[in-house]
Design a protein around this nucleic acid. Structure first.
Lengths: 152, 152
DNA sequence: TCTTGACTTGGATTGCGTCCATCGTAGGAT
DNA sequence: ATCCTACGATGGACGCAATCCAAGTCAAGA
């Protein structure tokens, strides 16, 4: 975490209080917050932080490769701080819960040359979909979840 | 194509001229149009068709399983008439060209049980990314493409 | 401490999509 | 062939996510 801030400063990132709280909010495992959720959490510590600043900081973190953008539904993008550990996503069709997962082998390798149409294929994004245990159980479905465990 | 219209009528779809042109616009291979592009093409044949009608028709075709929704960028959803043939997508990072591709084997099988967190995993969406031959070549990049070959 | 260019702000704006009240019409009934 | 009516089409208002912009603020090097 402070590693992250050090690394960013070493890359010429001016370390403002706004950027600091955005980076701090995006800490933890299986964290996939929308920009608005990041803004809400950041505002708990820095009430005057604006949405534009949150968008700016998120965009920079993505450009620097420190955070990954995830769009598992057609709605708002989510931001995943687990960018240094290649992974894919498993999404509950019921409540929206998102887990980071690692498939076996190299996902790129399963695309045959004949199916590459001459492309230089360099990356792959995979979204697995299904029902989480809570939503699969009979009874009332789980409340929509943003899958956040880190305290605000 | 007329197969499609027959099938839809058999399922109680009232066949209006608007729905017909939307279905016709969405014909062909490797077609991935946005709703706005569908509307523009439909309007060439039926100038008074409204955006709301296009959205309605697309939504119904998706619900009926005749068309698949694709969101390969964070922007507008695209509509893929190739829904009866399970496939994944290969997207050019330069120009946005989209190709339908078929990876080897069952993409679901590579997710180990230990990585399923108790989910009943039932579907998977894969986006491969890379540069198409035109964009990989030195020189001016290919113009942004909507990957449409079917004449308007 | 001073200076300056990078950063922040919030309101306007855009892009994509949905909603809604009203009007029109496909297609079964006669 | 004509009539009926429920389903579909229309377009303008609306909502949400994200970006843009001009003006004010401040981190950090000199």
């Amino acid at each position: 975490m402070s590693d992250l801030l050090e690394r960013l400063r070493g890359r010429g990132w001016r370390l403002t209080s706004q950027r600091r709280v955005v980076a701090e909010v995006l800490d933890g495992d299986h964290v996939h917050l929308t920009a608005d959720e990041v803004h809400a959490r950041a505002a708990r510590r820095l009430p005057e932080i604006s949405r534009a600043t949150v968008y700016n900081a998120l965009g920079e973190l993505v450009a620097l490769g420190e955070v990954a953008e995830v769009s598992t539904d057609g709605r708002a993008k989510r931001y995943d701080p687990n960018a240094h550990h290649p992974h894919q996503h498993l999404v509950c069709s019921g409540c929206g819960l998102i887990r980071d997962v690692r498939p076996d082998g190299d996902p790129l390798a399963v695309l045959p040359a004949a199916e590459r149409f001459g492309f230089a294929v360099s990356a792959v994004e995979i979204t697995y979909r299904g029902l989480c245990p809570a939503c699969a159980r009979p009874g009332p479905p789980a409340a929509p979840s943003n899958d956040v465990r880190a305290p605000g």
